[in-house]
Design a protein around this nucleic acid. Structure first.
Lengths: 418, 418
DNA sequence: AGCTATTTGTTCAGTGGTTGAATTATTTGG
DNA sequence: CCAAATAATTCAACCACTGAACAAATAGCT
C-alpha cells in the first residue's frame, strides 16, 4: 500500500518499441509539449514542434482530453488570417500531487495540479526534534488529510504523495539518517501502515515516494522557472547544507540516491572537526550555526528562515560581524562550488533555502573563489542566483514530482481502473 | 568535411515516435542486445530479453545482416533438446572506428571493429611540446593513413574518427587549452583541411570528433569491462590529472563538455600555489611531477608511463621516499575523491593512466580519506580499483566511441549512400 | 529406427497507429 | 462577397509489430 521508490530514477526499460508503445510514447510526447509550452499551443503547433502529423496529434489529443488530462482553452491568442486555433492546456481539475515535508522546525503540506499551480499550502511550525518519528508522521497525516479535503473540493484527485525529509533515504522509503531531526533507520511506510491511505493507488504508480529534501527542492526550482537552465546545482542552506544536482532537466540521484551531500565536502582539510568524523567540512564554515556564531548571534531556537532573515537585516544595515560572517561563509561555499563546477562543468548555481535571501552577500565571495579556482571560468562564466522558491521549494517540488510523473507517463493514469 | 561535435551528447530530439522511427528504434535495440550479450545470442534470446516477438526480431535481424552489421556465428553452444540456435555476432568485417591521440610524449592511432576488438594499434613516441600543432597533426595524419590501409586490408571500412587531446575542447573541435602540450585555441578541423579526408563521410555522422583524453579514456574503460559498473569515476593520472565521469553507462560531459577537471579541485585551500591561479589544487599534490619530486626522483624527461613504472618498482622495493610520496598523493587524491563521492554518490573509482599500476600504494590512503569524509561510506562501500586498460585507454576509447555511435544508431550507417 | 518432446526460426493474415491528401471549418483582407 | 490563409478532421493506404500456426532440427526415450 505504501510502497516506495525514488523520484526520477528511470526504470531500466529494455527500450524495445512494441506496437502499442507507439501510442504510449506519443501520448507522453504530446502531453509534455503542452506542459512545456509558454502559451497554450494549438494542435498545429504541437504537430510542428514534434514532427508528428496534425492527424496524429489530433488523435492523441482526443485521448488526452477524454482522459481529463488536457482541456481546450477558449480564448486562444489570435494572429493573422485563418481559422482560429484552439489552445490546449493541462487541466486544472484532474490529477494532482500531494507534497509533504518534515523538517526540524515545521511540517508542511502542499497540493500542486497538473499545470504546476500550487492549489493548497499549509505550514505548521513546531520543533520536531523531541517528537518521535511515529508522532511526527501522525501529525503530518492530519495535515495531509486536510489538504486532501481541500483538493477534492476543488475538483482535484490526488494521484500520489511525495515526502521530503532532511536526510538520507533508501529505496524502500527507509530514512537511514536524518541527523538534524535525530532520526535513524526510520521505516516511513511501516509507520504509516496504521493510517488510512491518502490516495487511491494507481497501478504502476508508487503511492508514496520518500526523498531527500534537497533533491526535491532542486526539482521544485527546476519547474518553478521553466525558462531557467536545464542543468544547475541547487544548494539548500539550512542547519545542514544539501544540494540537488539537475542535469539536462532531470534530477541526478546517484547510484543509491544519495547524491548532493555537499555539506561534507572538505573545504579546509585540516580544519575544524565535524560531527561526520571528517575535518573542515563545508558545514562547519557555511552551515547556519557556524554563520550565526561567527556573526556573534545567539544561535537561539529561531526557526531557520527567521535566522536567515535576521542575518539579512543585519547585513543590510552593514553590521560588521554579520558581513564578515557572510563573507567567510561565501568563501567556504565558493571553494565547494569550485569543486563542483570543475567536476561537472555546470554554469548555474542556485542558492536556496536560507541562502536565498542572503545571496547578495554570499555571491561575491562565491564568484571570487570560482573564478580563481575554475580553469574554465574565463570562457564559461558561472551564474550564482537566488532561488525563486524560498524555503517551500522542497514541498512544492515534492508535490510537483508527482504530477510530473503523470505528465511523463500518462498511460498509467489514463488506464487506471475506476 | 571535418565538422565536429561532442561524443555522447544526445541530440535534443523531440522524442516523437513516427511510423518509421519504430523500425529505427528496434534496429538499435536489437543491435544493442547483440553487442551487450556475453555469448552470441539467438534470435529467440533477443526476443525474450527485449520483449519483442520472434517474428519481429527475425525481420530486424534480417535487415542487420543485409546491412553487414551482424553475422551468424555457426558453432552456437548447444543446450538441451530442440532445434539448434544460430548465434548472432557483430560482424568483424564491417564498419570500424579510427581512434587518434595526441599527448605530450607520443602519438597514437588505433582501429576498433564493431565488436570492440582492437584490430590495429600504433604508438609513436616523440616529445611534442616543441612541435607546432600543424606539424603534430600532420604526423598524426600519416599514422592515421597507415592505420586506414591496414584496416582496409582486413576488410574493414572506417566510419569515423575520434581524436583525444589532453585539454579542453569546444564543440566545433576547437582546442581551447592544452596546457601540457602548450596549445591554445587550436582549431583542429581547420588544420586538417589541407589533408585528404580519412573517412568517406556518412550522412548524419560527424566524420571527426575531438574530445578530451580523460573523457575518452573513461569511455574506453567502460567498454573494456562490460561486466563492470554502469557508473564510475575514472581518474587519469598523468602530468595533469583528468577524470571522466560515467553515469548509467554514458559519459557525462557537462554543459560545455568540460566536466572532470578534477586536477584543480582544492585539496588544501591555502596550500601550494598552482599555475591555474588557485591554491592547493590536487595536481600540486598528486600530479606526476609532484609525486616524482616528493619521491626525490629527478623529474626527468622520462615518458609518463616510464615514470609510473619507476615509481612502482621503487615502491615494490619498499623505497621509503617513494612510499611516502605515494601515501601523500593518495591522501590528496582521497580528499578529492571524497568530494566527488559526496556529491555524486558513486560507488566505484577507477585509477587509470599512470595511476593504474600504482593502485596498490595509492588505494589505502584514498580509502582512508573516503571512509573518514563520506557520510554514507558506512552503508555504501566505495571500490577503488586499477583500470584494465593502461595508458592506451584514451585511443581505444576514441576508436570505440565511433563504433558505439553506429551501434546506438545503426540507421545512419545502413542508409549511407554507395 | 522411430516416436515424442522441445526449441528455433519463418510465414502469413490481422491489427494498431501513423501518414498524406483531400475536405471542412473559420477567420482576415481586399 | 470572394480569395487567401490557417486550423482541424476525415479516410483510405501503408508500415511494422503481433500471434498463431508451421516447418526445421535436435535430444531423449523406447
Amino acid at each position: 500500500m505504501w510502497q516506495c521508490q525514488g523520484v526520477t530514477r528511470p526504470a531500466p526499460v529494455s527500450g524495445a518499441v512494441r506496437q502499442g508503445s507507439l501510442r504510449e510514447l506519443n501520448l507522453a510526447v504530446v502531453l509534455g509539449r503542452i506542459a512545456a509550452a509558454h502559451r497554450p499551443p494549438s494542435r498545429a503547433d504541437v504537430a510542428a514542434s514534434t514532427g508528428l502529423t496534425r492527424a496524429t496529434v489530433s488523435a492523441v489529443v482526443d485521448d488526452l482530453i477524454a482522459g481529463r488530462l488536457v482541456a481546450e482553452s477558449e480564448p486562444a491568442p489570435r494572429t493573422g488570417a485563418g481559422r482560429p486555433a484552439r489552445g490546449l492546456v493541462l487541466t486544472g481539475s484532474g490529477p494532482a500531487g500531494l507534497g509533504l515535508e518534515i523538517n526540524v522546525d515545521y511540517l508542511s503540506a502542499c497540493v500542486v495540479d497538473l499545470a504546476g499551480r500550487v492549489r493548497h499550502h499549509t505550514v505548521r511550525r513546531a520543533d520536531l526534534r523531541p517528537v518521535s518519528p511515529a508522532d511526527a508522521l501522525a501529525r503530518l497525516v492530519a495535515l495531509a488529510a486536510a489538504a486532501r479535503v481541500d483538493a477534492e473540493q476543488q475538483g482535484l484527485t490526488l494521484a500520489g504523495v511525495a515526502l521530503a525529509v532532511p536526510g538520507l533515504v533508501c529505496d524502500a522509503g527507509l530514512v537511514r539518517l536524518a541527523p538534524n531531526l535525530g532520526w535513524r533507520d526510520v521505516a516511513v511506510p511501516e509507520l504509516l501502515a496504521g493510517h488510512p491511505p491518502l490516495v487511491k493507488p494507481v497501478p504502476g504508480v508508487p503511492p508514496l515516494v520518500v526523498d531527500n529534501e534537497a533533491n526535491l527542492a532542486a526539482v521544485g526550482e527546476l519547474h518553478a522557472d521553466p525558462a531557467g537552465p536545464a542543468s544547475f546545482l541547487h544548494i539548500s542552506g539550512e542547519v545542514g547544507i544539501g544540494a540537488g544536482i539537475v542535469l539536462d532537466g532531470a534530477l541526478f540521484r546517484g547510484v543509491r540516491g544519495w547524491s548532493g551531500e555537499i555539506g561534507h565536502i572538505p573545504v579546509q582539510p585540516q580544519g575544524r572537526p565535524c560531527r561526520c568524523g571528517g575535518r573542515g567540512c563545508l558545514e562547519q564554515y557555511a552551515g547556519q550555526e557556524a554563520v550565526l556564531a561567527a556573526a556573534g548571534l545567539d544561535r537561539a531556537d529561531l526557526p531557520a528562515d527567521t535566522a536567515a532573515a535576521r542575518l539579512a537585516n543585519l547585513a543590510a544595515a552593514e553590521h560588521p560581524a554579520a558581513l564578515a560572517a557572510l563573507a567567510e561563509a561565501g568563501q567556504a561555499l565558493g571553494v565547494a562550488v569550485a569543486s563542483v563546477v570543475n567536476l561537472l562543468d555546470l554554469d548555474t548555481v542556485v542558492l536556496g533555502g536560507g541562502y536565498a535571501r542572503l545571496t547578495p552577500w554570499l555571491r561575491p565571495a562565491v564568484l571570487a573563489e570560482v573564478s580563481r579556482r575554475v580553469l574554465t571560468a574565463g570562457w564559461a562564466p558561472v551564474t550564482v542566483r537566488p532561488a525563486v522558491l524560498g524555503p517551500e521549494a522542497a514541498v512544492v517540488g515534492a508535490a510537483g514530482s508527482v504530477v510530473r510523473r503523470i505528465v511523463a507517463d500518462p498511460v498509467s493514469w489514463l488506464t487506471r481502473p475506476g
